Measured scan of single mutants.
Amino acid sequence: KYLVLALYDYQEKSPREVTMKKGDILTLLNSTNKDWWKVEVNGRQGFVPAAYVKYL
Score class of each variant (00 low, 15 high):
Pro49Gly: 02
Leu5Arg: 09
Gln11Glu: 15
Thr27His: 11
Ser14Asn: 13
Val53Phe: 05
Glu40Arg: 08
Lys38Gly: 06
Ser14Trp: 06
Tyr8Ser: 10
Val18Met: 11
Ala6Tyr: 03
Glu40Cys: 11
Tyr2Pro: 14
Tyr8Asp: 09
Lys13Thr: 14
Thr32Pro: 04
Lys21Met: 11
Leu26His: 03
Glu12Val: 06
Asp24Val: 04
Lys13Ser: 11
Val4Asp: 00
Asp35Ser: 12
Glu17Ile: 04
Val48Gly: 00
Leu5Phe: 10
Val53Ile: 09
Lys34Phe: 08
Pro49Ile: 03
Ala50Ser: 13
Ile25Tyr: 06
Asp24Arg: 02
Gln45Glu: 12
Asn30Met: 08
Thr27Ile: 15
Lys21Ala: 09
Val4Leu: 15
Val39Gly: 00
Ala51Gly: 12
Tyr8Phe: 14
Pro15Asp: 13
Asp35Tyr: 15
Asn30Ile: 08
Tyr2Val: 15
Val39Met: 02
Leu29Thr: 05
Leu28Tyr: 02
Asp9Leu: 02
Leu26Ala: 09
Asn42Ser: 10
Leu28Val: 09
Tyr52Cys: 09
Leu7His: 03
Glu12Asp: 05
Trp36Ser: 03
Tyr10Lys: 01
Gln11Asn: 14
Ala50Asn: 03
Pro15Leu: 10
Gly43Arg: 05
Val18Lys: 01
Val18Pro: 01
Arg44Lys: 12
Asn33Asp: 15
Pro15Arg: 09
Lys22Met: 08
Tyr55Gly: 08
Asp24Tyr: 05
Met20Gln: 01
Asn33Leu: 09
Lys22Phe: 05
Trp37Gln: 02
Lys38Trp: 14
Gln11Arg: 10
Lys21Ser: 09
Tyr52Gly: 07
Val53Lys: 00
Pro49Glu: 01
Val18Cys: 08
Lys21Glu: 06
Pro49Leu: 04
Asp9Met: 03
Lys54Trp: 10
Lys1Gly: 12
Asp24Pro: 00
Trp37Leu: 08
Ser31Met: 12
Pro49Asn: 02
Val4Asn: 01
Lys13His: 09
Lys38Thr: 07
Arg44Cys: 05
Leu3Asp: 05
Gln11Leu: 13
Val18Tyr: 03
Val53Arg: 00
Trp37Tyr: 10
Asp24Cys: 06
Met20Glu: 00
Met20Ala: 02
Gln45Ser: 12
Gly46Pro: 00
Glu12His: 09
Ser31Thr: 12
Thr27Trp: 12
Gly46Val: 04
Gly46Glu: 01
Asp35Asn: 13
Glu17Phe: 07
Tyr2Gln: 15
Asn30Trp: 08
Gly23Asn: 07
Arg16Lys: 13
Ala6Leu: 03
Lys22His: 06
Tyr55Met: 15
Thr27Arg: 14
